Amino acid sequence: MSELSPEEYLDAVDEGRRSDVLALEALIREAAPGLERVVQRRILGYGPFRYRYAIGREGEAALIGLAAQKRYLSLYVLCAIDGRYLAETYADRLPGASAGKSCVRFTSLAKVDREVLRELVADAAAHGPQDAAGPDGPGHR
Protein backbone atom coordinates (compact mmCIF):
# COMPACT_ATOMS: atom_id res chain seq x y z
CA MET A 1 0.00 0.00 0.00
CA SER A 2 1.47 3.35 -0.98
CA GLU A 3 1.53 6.35 1.30
CA LEU A 4 -0.93 9.18 0.89
CA SER A 5 0.13 12.56 -0.38
CA PRO A 6 0.16 15.34 2.25
CA GLU A 7 -3.06 16.75 0.75
CA GLU A 8 -4.75 13.33 0.86
CA TYR A 9 -3.62 12.91 4.46
CA LEU A 10 -5.18 16.24 5.44
CA ASP A 11 -8.38 15.48 3.52
CA ALA A 12 -8.70 12.15 5.37
CA VAL A 13 -8.50 13.67 8.86
CA ASP A 14 -11.68 13.15 10.89
CA GLU A 15 -14.01 16.15 10.68
CA GLY A 16 -13.85 16.64 14.45
CA ARG A 17 -10.05 17.13 14.36
CA ARG A 18 -9.68 18.74 10.94
CA SER A 19 -9.75 22.40 12.03
CA ASP A 20 -7.06 21.80 14.69
CA VAL A 21 -4.92 19.78 12.28
CA LEU A 22 -5.19 22.40 9.54
CA ALA A 23 -4.32 25.18 12.01
CA LEU A 24 -1.34 23.22 13.32
CA GLU A 25 -0.24 22.40 9.78
CA ALA A 26 -0.36 26.12 8.90
CA LEU A 27 1.63 26.94 12.06
CA ILE A 28 4.33 24.40 11.14
CA ARG A 29 4.58 25.62 7.55
CA GLU A 30 4.84 29.23 8.74
CA ALA A 31 7.44 28.51 11.43
CA ALA A 32 9.47 26.14 9.23
CA PRO A 33 8.73 27.13 5.62
CA GLY A 34 11.72 25.35 4.10
CA LEU A 35 10.82 21.85 5.28
CA GLU A 36 9.50 19.44 2.64
CA ARG A 37 6.18 17.72 3.50
CA VAL A 38 5.84 13.93 3.28
CA VAL A 39 3.65 11.21 4.73
CA GLN A 40 5.55 8.45 6.55
CA ARG A 41 3.91 5.67 8.54
CA ARG A 42 0.56 7.52 8.73
CA ILE A 43 2.20 10.69 10.03
CA LEU A 44 2.43 13.98 8.15
CA GLY A 45 6.13 14.76 8.27
CA TYR A 46 8.20 17.87 7.64
CA GLY A 47 11.88 17.73 6.79
CA PRO A 48 12.47 14.09 5.81
CA PHE A 49 15.96 12.70 6.32
CA ARG A 50 17.83 9.39 6.29
CA TYR A 51 19.72 8.22 9.33
CA ARG A 52 22.37 5.57 9.86
CA TYR A 53 23.69 4.29 13.16
CA ALA A 54 27.26 3.16 13.70
CA ILE A 55 25.96 -0.42 14.00
CA GLY A 56 24.63 -0.13 10.43
CA ARG A 57 20.91 0.26 11.09
CA GLU A 58 19.38 2.90 8.85
CA GLY A 59 16.00 4.28 7.95
CA GLU A 60 13.91 7.33 7.19
CA ALA A 61 12.33 9.82 9.55
CA ALA A 62 11.13 13.41 9.55
CA LEU A 63 12.36 16.26 11.70
CA ILE A 64 8.78 17.19 12.65
CA GLY A 65 5.71 14.98 12.49
CA LEU A 66 2.00 15.63 12.94
CA ALA A 67 -0.50 12.86 13.66
CA ALA A 68 -4.23 13.05 14.35
CA GLN A 69 -4.91 10.22 16.80
CA LYS A 70 -8.37 9.21 18.05
CA ARG A 71 -8.04 10.95 21.40
CA TYR A 72 -5.29 13.50 20.84
CA LEU A 73 -3.00 15.29 18.41
CA SER A 74 0.67 14.39 18.42
CA LEU A 75 3.51 16.69 17.41
CA TYR A 76 6.77 14.75 17.03
CA VAL A 77 10.01 16.73 17.13
CA LEU A 78 13.07 14.60 16.37
CA CYS A 79 15.73 17.04 17.42
CA ALA A 80 18.21 16.96 20.28
CA ILE A 81 20.49 19.71 21.48
CA ASP A 82 23.32 19.05 23.92
CA GLY A 83 22.02 15.54 24.56
CA ARG A 84 18.44 16.57 25.40
CA TYR A 85 15.42 16.19 23.19
CA LEU A 86 14.08 19.58 22.22
CA ALA A 87 10.40 18.71 22.92
CA GLU A 88 11.13 17.80 26.53
CA THR A 89 12.88 21.13 27.09
CA TYR A 90 9.59 22.87 26.21
CA ALA A 91 7.41 20.68 28.50
CA ASP A 92 7.14 23.22 31.32
CA ARG A 93 5.92 25.85 28.84
CA LEU A 94 3.15 23.55 27.55
CA PRO A 95 1.08 22.76 30.67
CA GLY A 96 -1.99 21.78 28.61
CA ALA A 97 -0.02 19.01 26.90
CA SER A 98 1.71 15.78 27.74
CA ALA A 99 5.33 16.04 26.60
CA GLY A 100 7.72 13.13 26.31
CA LYS A 101 11.22 13.08 24.93
CA SER A 102 10.26 13.74 21.32
CA CYS A 103 6.46 14.01 21.35
CA VAL A 104 3.98 16.61 22.53
CA ARG A 105 0.39 15.33 22.85
CA PHE A 106 -2.75 17.38 23.45
CA THR A 107 -6.47 16.86 23.05
CA SER A 108 -7.15 20.23 21.47
CA LEU A 109 -5.07 23.03 20.02
CA ALA A 110 -7.01 25.42 22.29
CA LYS A 111 -5.37 23.76 25.33
CA VAL A 112 -1.81 24.69 24.38
CA ASP A 113 0.01 27.94 23.72
CA ARG A 114 0.37 28.20 19.94
CA GLU A 115 3.27 30.63 20.24
CA VAL A 116 5.24 28.10 22.28
CA LEU A 117 4.50 25.42 19.65
CA ARG A 118 5.61 27.86 16.93
CA GLU A 119 8.86 28.51 18.82
CA LEU A 120 9.46 24.76 19.27
CA VAL A 121 8.96 24.09 15.55
CA ALA A 122 11.17 27.03 14.51
CA ASP A 123 13.87 25.93 16.96
CA ALA A 124 13.87 22.39 15.53
CA ALA A 125 13.95 23.71 11.95
CA ALA A 126 16.89 25.96 12.83
CA HIS A 127 18.89 22.96 14.09
CA GLY A 128 17.82 20.69 11.27
CA PRO A 129 18.15 16.97 10.74
CA GLN A 130 21.82 16.77 11.73
CA ASP A 131 20.58 16.89 15.34
CA ALA A 132 17.29 15.09 14.73
CA ALA A 133 18.34 11.61 15.75
CA GLY A 134 18.85 12.67 19.33
CA PRO A 135 20.82 10.72 21.90
CA ASP A 136 18.77 7.51 21.46
CA GLY A 137 17.94 7.59 17.75
CA PRO A 138 14.90 8.64 15.72
CA GLY A 139 11.57 7.97 17.31
CA HIS A 140 12.96 6.79 20.64
CA ARG A 141 10.76 7.79 23.57
Rank of each mutant, 00 (worst) to 15 (best):
E58K: 03
A67L: 11
H127S: 05
G59T: 04
I55M: 13
Q69G: 06
A132V: 04
E58P: 03
K101R: 12
G137Y: 00
E115I: 02
P95R: 03
L78P: 05
A61C: 11
V116S: 01
Y53C: 06
G16F: 11
A80S: 14
A99G: 07
S102I: 14
D14V: 14
E115D: 12
A68C: 07
L66Q: 01
E115K: 06
G100C: 08
R57T: 12
E15V: 14
E115W: 02
Y51H: 05
A91Q: 07
A62E: 07
R114Y: 02
E58H: 11
H127I: 05
Q130L: 14
V116I: 08
L10H: 04
E25D: 15
R57I: 08
A62N: 10
G139M: 02
L78V: 09
L120R: 00
Y51F: 12
A23C: 04
G34W: 01
I55A: 15
G96P: 06
Q40S: 13
R52D: 00
Q40T: 14
V21E: 06
A61K: 00
L22Q: 11
A99N: 05
E60M: 13
E8P: 09
A97M: 02
E58V: 05
V112R: 02
A67P: 13
V21C: 09
V121P: 01
R57V: 10
Q69D: 03
V39M: 01
V13W: 07
Y72W: 11
R114D: 09
